[in-house]
Design a protein around this nucleic acid. Structure first.
Length: 259
DNA sequence: TATTCGTGGAC
DNA sequence: TGTCCAAGAAT
């Protein structure tokens, strides 16, 4: 479950070292639950999207309270935990507990788009048709289904990659609709690129980096140095406070949240 | 359904 | 060098 949280939108090679340290420090959900949320945010480091650290901490607390300290095996109970959506619930139930669930992430969606639909890339947002296809292709036998889930994801992650796909190494190349069609390029407008420079996200990232590295509370002027534009800077800081990632203290001091 | 939310490596 | 993007979730 920890790895799945960290892998939400973050590449494996960057997750691995943080994951190892995390589990070494907090081997069980109850261990993490006893810590402050701010410590989770600090240990999250530079993985990005630090709200995930808060949610993982919240999930650990819920598991300690409501589930006897064990990660629930039930899909619906997993889904009810903070930070766990359809994908992560299915992934934990399937990979950790060997259950039969369609695990539909971006890798699997790309494999389906190519092998079955015959197009280079899947739609921007997951469609009902994709979910239906995932259910239809999932093997009936539970053990086989969990193997299938892992295998289809690995195929997309390691072979049928977004760029520079390696059809010569692909075990289903002979039946791939996209390859058989001559690998036509994606039609339509390119997915709108996320410009990062100058956004609130960049400002939030800089602010939180200062707080992660600080030992104690940080005075406002130290935060002000990370960004020139005062309106955007204030908006970013307010956002972090609203998200529970930053705790304001009397006297213009800020720190990672203790509660 | 469309946006928002970080980061750093590859090209 | 700027663009693209990597095992999503919440709203």
């Amino acid at each position: 479950m920890v790895s799945e949280f960290m892998l939400q939108q973050t590449p494996v090679n960057r997750v691995l070292p943080v994951y190892e340290q995390w589990l070494s420090r907090w081997p069980r959900p109850a261990d993490l639950a006893e810590e402050s949320p701010g410590e989770a945010v600090r240990a999250w480091g530079r993985l990005g999207y630090p709200r995930r650290a808060l949610r993982l901490h919240g999930a650990a607390a819920a598991i300690a309270e409501r589930h006897g300290g064990d990660v629930p095996t039930d899909h619906a109970k997993l889904l009810a935990l903070p930070g766990i959506g359809e994908y992560t619930a299915a992934a934990v139930a399937s990979f950790a507990y060997g259950q039969r669930h369609p695990v539909l992430d971006t890798n699997v969606r790309r494999v389906f788009a190519r092998a079955v639909t015959g197009v280079q890339y899947p739609p921007n947002a997951t469609t009902a048709a994709e979910r239906k296809l995932a259910r239809a292709l999932l093997p009936e036998d539970e053990h086989t289904a969990s193997r299938w889930a892992a295998a289809s994801m690995e195929l997309g992650a390691l072979v049928c990659t977004a760029k520079n796909e390696s059809c010569v190494r692909c075990p289903i190349a002979a039946q791939c609709a996209w390859r058989l069609a001559g690998k036509p390029a994606h039609e339509g407008p390119p997915r709108r690129g996320q410009t990062y420079a100058g956004t609130d996200r960049q400002v939030r990232g800089r602010l939180l980096a200062v707080l992660r590295e600080a030992v104690g509370p940080v005075p406002q002027p130290a935060l002000d140095r990370v960004w020139d534009e005062p309106v955007q800077r204030a908006r970013a800081l307010d956002g972090l406070v609203a998200d529970g990632l930053v705790e304001p203290l009397p006297g213009g001091l800020y720190r990672l949240p203790l509660t």
